[in-house]
Amino acid sequence: MKPAPFDYVRASDGAEVLDVLHRQGADARILAGGQSLLPMLNMRLARPAVLVDIMHVPSLQSIADDGTALRIGAAVRQAELEARPDLARRQKLLAAALPWIGHAQTRSRGTVCGSVAHADPSAELPLLLVALGGTVHLRSRRRHRAVEAGAFFTGMMATDRADDELIEAVSIPTARPGAGYAFREIGRRHGDFAIVACAAVVENGRARLGIGGVADRPVAQDMPGPDDEALDEALDAFAWALEARDDLHATARYRRELVRRLGRATIEEAARCRA
């Protein structure tokens, strides 16, 4: 279980990163925290020609709060975010979801943008981004663009990122006054990939529910509010629309049922937690 050979570049500025991506495209992989990439390298599932280590690029290390969103650079580790004292107030959903990501020993290295780039359909951060309507900032030598999270995730470990693009940062909208947020997850054990993860926002009597672990990507949908009798029907339709599948750990039926039950419970919790 040892990686196949690759070159290693420890980039010191953003241009160096973009140069390698420009020249080698799909044969290059960004190495940030490495918590998703290294297992794939060790199992030889991935065989990049070159790894570009971005953790020493100063411009990618920043966290900026402009009042409406938190912009998180590509070299920001999950643990750094977790340690922000104002997180529970400014980023309620993020604060609730972060402890569910792997374990403390992997969040210490894993980055926010790395999890977004990996696009595991069960991962918490992509779900959160989609549920909150966040933005992914991409940069290549050709251009800079911002993509809505809902359009960024295109399938199983597949994203809208072009081979020469770097996910430079993601923006997560700040918690709005009057809105309630809640996150719930069911896995086989704590720290496992979610069988079903629910992220809910309730505002002005309406809800938005994001579901991870069921479809091939995180999906969010507007929903009737918790007191609306149409909610059950909407949850049922959502549960079917996600086309749940069977795997070793759960059945499609179980996933659908959790979308209905846990989805409702999460929306109700979000409504209770309105600031």
Binding site: R188, I195, D236, D246, T251, R253, E257
Partner: peptide, 29 residues
């Protein structure tokens, strides 16, 4: 004792899905 397996004894019968186009499916398990 998988929760998904035990759940079959807890959950009420599921209503059939809304009409959807035929999709490839894997047989359970």
């Amino acid at each position: 004792l998988l929760p998904a397996r035990l759940a079959e004894h807890l959950f009420a019968a599921e209503t059939s899905p809304p009409d959807r186009p035929a999709r490839p499916v894997a047989k359970p398990g």
